[in-house]
Design a protein around this nucleic acid. Structure first.
Lengths: 203, 203
DNA sequence: CTCTGTGAAACACTTCACAGCG
DNA sequence: CGCTGTGAAGTGTTTCACAGAG
């Protein structure tokens, strides 16, 4: 199997939502494109990575396309996620509907604040960060999100790596240097605002 | 002046932070690259869009490089931002240090909840969403962030467009169809998690 | 005749590698 | 000599445009 471009992977789940919204038994690439707001050729190219799913002259069968996407993305079984840092961002992420829709289960929030530890947000328990290592090793989660202040991020990364977690999404504004076996993706909330602002001023 | 690639704009502010961390009067592209975690050739290419700022054999003068970046990005005067939706995400964004560091002033949070309206978060007042139109027209903000549930996003977009706001950052998981005069950038919090998860399972 | 699947071109961005300035 | 600035090559992604399946 050839490998699927990252950009495509990022869109597949959206096609799934688009299919749901359209709620038709057959859909064309145009339909999907309109529903999720991308180019139709893009949709066809993306879906072609799943093998031949469409019928020429007709379109795609919603139900089998749905299964094909789910299968390809490994969305069949749920992936456990730990959110480290139970501040506003951590809580926002814990309540984000998008995650469960896409096969993720937030297994726990981790924090150092004794007032928070022991409580729960959106039914997700807040545990002390010292439990991170044990919980990770016990397979409670496979992926972690760092939503702490920048100062704490390095320490958290080290603990996660220790716990054998190899996929980390970092929202803290810090430059992390992960060991080679760990993949860290950084999300900078201000970058997009920056870009928007920049081009606004020069049009 | 040729136009600067979006990817470059997204990095310029990080170089600024890197310069601050380094705290040296002269820095090389290698230094900056190491500080912010990118390739040195990338740094040189990015900085070359600002015109000749460096001295061959020596490096860049921190202070004048700093000014050049600030000038280029229009970070001289503060840009007002409205955050619509005072849920956890809105509150997290309101408290996000990164924004003020990069020349943005969060002018207000807007919500429909009467329990929230009239209070403040991080010294940012929460106003009723009906004030959005007037405040926007009065120039209180130039950019808006949508941090509402998906259902409310369309309505909010319409009001913002009405208020003359032409740059919008959307965190709601909804496909928005802005009028041509408005630029909307979508941030999907689960896309990155999706990508991470996908490649984790196939390594 | 419609709509997919895909070569090929276009585009955007990154990285290499090195000429040449100070 | 050390480092910038940049042609040129490389990589990843999008879009066009159309052959051909149904």
């Amino acid at each position: 199997m050839q490998d699927i471009p990252r950009a495509t992977v990022g869109r597949l789940a959206r096609y799934l939502q688009g299919l749901e919204e359209l709620a038709r038994s057959t859909v064309s690439s145009e339909d999907i494109a309109a529903a999720v707001g991308v180019n139709a050729a893009q949709v066809r190219r993306d879906l072609s990575y799943l093998g031949h799913q469409g019928v020429r002259g007709v379109g795609y069968d919603s139900e089998s396309l749905r299964s094909a996407i789910l299968r390809e993305m490994g969305l069949i079984d749920t992936v456990g996620v730990a959110i480290v840092g139970a501040g506003h961002l951590g809580q926002a992420l814990a309540g984000y509907r998008g995650f469960e829709d896409r096969g993720f289960l937030v297994a726990g929030l981790y924090d150092v604040d004794p007032d928070k530890v022991g409580t729960a947000i959106h039914d997700i328990p807040i545990r002390h960060i010292d439990q991170l290592l044990g919980d990770g090793r016990n397979g409670l989660f496979q992926i972690a999100i760092i939503a702490t202040p920048a100062e704490a991020a390095h320490e958290v990364l080290a603990r996660l790596a220790d716990a054998g977690i190899r996929s980390i999404l970092n929202f803290a504004p810090a430059v992390l240097r992960p060991p080679v076996s760990v993949e860290v993706r950084n999300v900078d909330l201000s970058t997009e605002l920056q870009i928007l602002s920049f081009y606004r001023s020069r049009k």
